[in-house]
Amino acid sequence: MERLPTGIPVLDRELDGGLPAGSVVTLKADPASQSELFLNTFAGVRESLYLTTVRSAGAVESGLSASSVETGDPVVETVDGEDPIESVRTYLPSIPDDGTVIVDSTEPLENADPVRYRSLLTDLGDRVVETEATAVLHALKRGGERSRNRLATEQVADVVFDLRTVVTGTAIENRLAVPKFRGGAALEEPVKLKLTDTVSVDTSRDIA
């Protein structure tokens, strides 16, 4: 199966070249983390459609322009807050062949009717398989709570990235776990990453 690079070398090495074409990826992260670096990087690897459900399209475009990573020239669209499910559905035909579609973030969609949300996830999955693209669902964590349909988001995903950010004293530690990987091997251990203006390997030693 063709692998599509993520644009993050350490991750591509760990995943044997990247993500299988036609994959739906869920990126779980704390709202205060640097997870947008991942989205910016994914958007720059190939032709991309960036659907924003919370921020305005202008805010996303400004963030992409200011980013230190190579973000390419993604098409950024604002999802209608009145009916986000139907709004995202109207953009499915615009997902580029061999490209990437980013949904940032999933929470407004996960708060919708479960039947409609699951139907959207099915159609999204079918569309990325048809186009041999990759879908990235940015799923923010909310402490111990789950969004109404978060379980469905994780079940449908072919790959789950779990970004774990821990602040201890003056140090910030980021580790990326890949607990789920259909069509490949999940990572045995989280990868320690350095998230500054780019995503790189953290070579500092752990202090017990």
Results as ranks from 00 to 15, higher is better:
residue 18 G to W: 12
residue 18 G to T: 12
residue 19 L to N: 06
residue 22 G to V: 06
residue 22 G to I: 08
residue 22 G to T: 08
residue 23 S to Q: 06
residue 24 V to G: 05
residue 24 V to S: 09
residue 24 V to E: 01
residue 25 V to C: 03
residue 26 T to V: 15
residue 27 L to H: 01
residue 27 L to P: 05
residue 29 A to C: 12
residue 29 A to D: 09
residue 30 D to K: 11
residue 30 D to S: 15
residue 31 P to H: 00
residue 32 A to E: 15
residue 32 A to L: 15
residue 34 Q to M: 11
residue 34 Q to R: 15
residue 34 Q to W: 01
residue 34 Q to D: 12
residue 35 S to I: 08
residue 35 S to P: 02
residue 35 S to F: 14
residue 37 L to Q: 06
residue 37 L to C: 03
residue 37 L to K: 07
residue 37 L to H: 06
residue 38 F to L: 04
residue 39 L to V: 13
residue 39 L to T: 12
residue 40 N to S: 13
residue 41 T to D: 01
residue 42 F to K: 00
residue 42 F to L: 13
residue 43 A to Y: 06
residue 43 A to K: 01
residue 44 G to P: 10
residue 44 G to T: 04
residue 44 G to N: 07
residue 44 G to L: 10
residue 46 R to W: 10
residue 47 E to H: 08
residue 47 E to Y: 03
residue 47 E to C: 00
residue 48 S to E: 06
residue 48 S to G: 05
residue 48 S to I: 10
residue 50 Y to A: 04
residue 50 Y to T: 08
residue 51 L to I: 08
residue 52 T to W: 10
residue 52 T to A: 04
residue 53 T to S: 15
residue 54 V to P: 02
residue 54 V to W: 09
residue 56 S to K: 00
residue 57 A to H: 07
residue 57 A to F: 01
residue 58 G to D: 13
residue 58 G to P: 02
residue 59 A to T: 13
residue 60 V to L: 05
residue 60 V to Q: 07
residue 61 E to V: 10
residue 62 S to L: 09
residue 62 S to H: 08
residue 63 G to Q: 08
residue 64 L to I: 11
residue 64 L to W: 11
residue 65 S to H: 12
residue 65 S to C: 00
residue 69 V to E: 01
residue 69 V to H: 10
residue 70 E to W: 05
residue 71 T to A: 05
residue 71 T to G: 02
residue 72 G to W: 14
residue 72 G to E: 03
residue 72 G to D: 09
residue 73 D to Q: 14
residue 73 D to P: 00
residue 73 D to Y: 14
residue 73 D to K: 15
residue 73 D to N: 15
residue 75 V to M: 11
residue 75 V to T: 13
residue 75 V to W: 08
residue 75 V to C: 12
residue 76 V to P: 03
residue 76 V to A: 10
residue 76 V to I: 14
residue 77 E to A: 15
residue 77 E to V: 15
residue 77 E to H: 09
residue 78 T to E: 12
residue 78 T to F: 06
residue 78 T to K: 14
residue 78 T to Y: 04
residue 78 T to P: 11
residue 80 D to F: 02
residue 81 G to Q: 12
residue 81 G to A: 12
residue 81 G to M: 04
residue 82 E to C: 01
residue 82 E to P: 00
residue 82 E to H: 10
residue 82 E to D: 14
residue 82 E to M: 06
residue 82 E to L: 03
residue 83 D to I: 13
residue 84 P to F: 14
residue 84 P to R: 05
residue 85 I to S: 11
residue 85 I to M: 07
residue 85 I to H: 00
residue 86 E to H: 03
residue 87 S to Y: 08
residue 87 S to W: 07
residue 89 R to L: 04
residue 89 R to F: 10
